[in-house]
């Protein structure tokens, strides 16, 4: 009889500790989840802003000015375009 009581009390103790531990864990994880969700949203917003900025920095007039300033390149002229026949890839038999 004594032993049963002891076992019961012991298991109650273990379970209480386990339950508290799990409960605590859940709270921590939920906080972490919330934080992560917030970070995701703010990152997504930051991405939107950065994408807008990227597009703005790629403005055609700006790119043209920069290219004229820093590159020794100019737009392709029609005469620079030609079609070159590509030789067929060697087949197994040829090898």
């Amino acid at each position: 009889m004594r032993r049963t009581t002891l076992i019961t009390l012991l298991s109650v103790g273990v379970m209480t500790v386990a339950l508290f531990y799990v409960g605590h864990e859940v709270t921590t994880l939920e906080e972490e989840l919330e934080l992560l969700n917030k970070t995701i949203v703010s990152d997504q917003e930051a991405i939107r802003v950065l994408r807008a900025e990227w597009s703005h920095l790629n403005e055609t007039d700006r790119l043209r000015e920069l290219a004229e300033k820093y590159l020794a390149l100019e737009p392709v002229r029609p005469a620079q375009i030609t079609s070159v026949p590509i030789p067929a890839a060697p087949t197994e038999e040829v090898r």
Partner: peptide
């Protein structure tokens, strides 16, 4: 795919 209009927070 160049961005022409977008919404920023």
């Amino acid at each position: 795919g160049i961005l022409l209009a977008t919404s920023v927070p």
